[in-house]
């Protein structure tokens, strides 16, 4: 492989990894607080692409505004899903909440099929993201650079929110101990809503850029990326934001490099994530940087 080709794969891997990282954060944050694997997260991701698409195509909003609105609306949808499907089960066994999450996931997929129909739609790609740059023979689209930059900006905002704000401090407290957090006067339900908003909004950021990178979207779009990003979160160490980012990049780069170095395996591209999951569960079940989770009482 030439160095040029390698660099092109590297750029692709980083950009795919950024998308995985953005989506994986939603899994890890919700897990950190509720010890729940939010199986509807892939569907939230899917919905964000349709919201952005309709914003641009149906309401003919400028893309900047449409994308921003899509991020906010998706964040609110995440909050709404939590209120409707998880919050009423707060005192129930974990398994009930998990089943509710799977139910919501199927519900949203099928609702998508009814509303958006099963026929794939083309996601708009504004010119800003579609400029081609020529680097001595290899062509790279501006989107490939924009994705990691946007991801880095949102990750920076997230790190600031979690570590430097009062709400972030409350989130970290709630993730350790609901009851004691209540004794501090923290409104736990509000903190959970914030968590779902942030996780879903980041999934929307990922979803919109996903749509521009792979512009055919359909209502089952969330299934595979959703599973893969869940795997990324587990690989990195579920519950940890840094872990989700590491897992996302690991998975994105791994997938691209697998195909790059072993073209004969390109049919197994999607299997890479699952093999990785099996290996990590065998070798280090807590994930790359995962800490031991003590059961909350």
């Amino acid at each position: 492989m030439t160095i040029d080709a390698f660099l092109q794969h590297l750029a692709n891997g980083i950009s795919l990894g950024s998308l995985y990282a953005l989506i994986a954060i939603g899994y890890t944050m919700v897990y950190g607080i509720l010890r729940l694997i939010n199986f509807a997260h892939g569907e939230i991701f899917m919905l964000s692409t349709y919201v952005a698409l309709y914003g641009v195509a149906l309401f003919t909003l400028p893309w900047q505004l449409a994308f921003l609105l899509a991020i906010l609306i998706t964040g609110l949808m995440g909050v709404l899903i939590e209120k409707a499907a998880y919050s009423p089960l707060r005192e129930s066994p974990k398994m009930s909440v998990l089943i509710s999450a799977i139910g919501i996931s199927f519900f949203l997929q099928n609702l998508g099929l009814v509303i958006f129909t099963g026929r794939p739609k083309t996601f708009p790609r504004p010119d800003f993201f579609a400029k081609m740059y020529d680097f001595g023979g290899i062509k790279i689209m501006s989107l490939t650079f924009v994705i990691p930059i946007v991801a880095a900006i949102f990750l920076g905002i997230l790190v600031f929110l979690v570590n430097k704000t009062k709400m972030g401090m409350a989130m970290r407290a709630v993730s350790k101990d609901f009851e004691t957090a209540r004794l501090m006067g923290i409104d736990v339900d509000k903190v959970i809503s914030y968590t779902f908003f942030i996780g879903s909004a980041l999934a929307a950021v990922g979803g919109i850029m996903w749509g521009m990178k792979f512009p055919r979207i359909d209502p089952l779009l969330g299934l595979l990326p959703g599973l893969k990003c869940f795997i990324a979160a587990v690989v990195g160490g579920i519950g940890s934001i840094t872990g989700a980012v590491i897992g996302g990049f690991f998975l994105g780069l791994g997938e691209i490099m697998l195909v790059a170095f072993f073209p004969e395996f390109s049919g197994y591209r999607d299997a890479f994530a699952f093999v990785l999951l099996i290996i990590i569960l065998l070798v280090k079940p807590t994930g790359i940087i995962g800490e031991k989770m003590t059961e909350k009482v």
Partner: peptide
């Protein structure tokens, strides 16, 4: 809160 600093615990 074991994962928070002493100062953050007091702030909470």
């Amino acid at each position: 809160f074991a994962n928070l600093t002493v100062y953050e615990n007091l702030l909470l």
